[in-house]
């Protein structure tokens, strides 16, 4: 059976709205009938209104009870399909990783051929432009596998608006302060996650509990965002280079040295950098 999950989610939300709106209307009608009873004082009308109110209360209960069951059913079904999708995504990511490893060993970067629009809006992944990547001076980045830095080019290119780019500068600056390698590593992590999840960099950066510097919208990135702290040129350069397809790690998690305060850094299995 083919399920349009987004349509069901929309319908589920609409059901909740209907439930709320109908319950509200019933209460308002009951209040109005009570007001009328107080305005026109006749025992017959008061009794009639009381009957109507009682009938509407019963109806309201019936509708709410059954709508709750319907909403619960849809929510259960949606959760089931969401889990299925997550499992499928994980399998797909694993498959891509395996294929990437094979192609990496022969020096071919398969992601460089990816061309698609991610979500709506202005952010896109386009086919990597070898000429652009080749023209970038990557000599400022240290290639040190033992420390987790392996500089490479030809990764997906992201085109951001000025405000999106400024937001990324601010977040990376708050995470990595002023270090080419750390700034490129944080940028790489953001874009690696964007690649893997088919999401925009902005969506990745603002996801809950992903980047401490964002902090739900009130983190230290704000000082860079609003200009009270100057964004270092090294950070701007690293972010720009990363958006043009340069990466220095393939990890999905990374602790910037300048952020943790560690004097020495090591990379362990799983890609997290720890003291």
């Amino acid at each position: 059976m083919k399920i349009n999950v987004s349509e069901i989610m929309r319908l589920n939300g609409r059901l909740s709205n209907i439930e709320t709106e109908l319950a509200s209307v019933f209460v308002k009608i009951s209040n109005e009938l009570t007001a009328i009873s107080n305005n026109i004082k006749t025992s017959i009308l008061i009794e009639s209104n009381r009957n109507v109110i009682e009938k509407m209360e019963n109806l309201s209960f019936t509708i709410n009870h059954n709508l709750d069951k319907l909403i619960e059913f849809l929510t259960t079904q949606l959760n089931s399909y969401t889990v299925t999708n997550e499992e499928a995504t994980a399998s797909l990511e694993h498959l891509i990783e395996q294929i990437t490893n094979v192609f990496d060993s022969s020096g071919t970067v398969i992601m460089s051929t990816k061309t698609e629009t991610i979500m709506s809006g202005t952010t896109t992944v386009s086919e990597a432009a070898p000429s652009l990547a080749d023209s970038i001076d990557i000599s400022v980045y240290k290639d040190n596998p033992e420390m987790g830095f392996v500089v490479s080019t030809g990764h997906p290119v992201y085109e951001l608006t000025d405000s999106e780019r400024h937001f990324m500068y601010s977040l990376v600056a708050a995470e990595a302060i002023n270090d080419y390698d750390d700034a490129l590593a944080v940028s790489s992590v953001i874009l690696n996650r964007a690649d893997a999840n088919n999401m925009t960099p902005e969506a990745i950066m603002t996801r809950k509990n992903q980047f401490e510097a964002y902090g739900g919208g009130s983190g230290p990135y704000l000082k860079y965002q609003n200009g009270s702290k100057e964004i270092p040129e090294a950070v701007k350069r690293a972010v720009d280079d990363a958006l043009n397809g340069v990466r220095n790690c393939g990890y999905f998690s990374f602790n910037a040295n300048s952020n943790t305060g560690y004097s020495d850094i090591q990379v362990v299995d799983g890609g997290n950098r720890f003291k």
Binding site: N38, N39, I40, K41, L45
Partner: peptide, 13 residues
């Protein structure tokens, strides 16, 4: 017989 306190309120209702 009926007793109407406010015709305006009645119309509003």
């Amino acid at each position: 017989n009926y007793n109407i306190n406010s015709v305006t309120d009645l119309e509003n209702s």
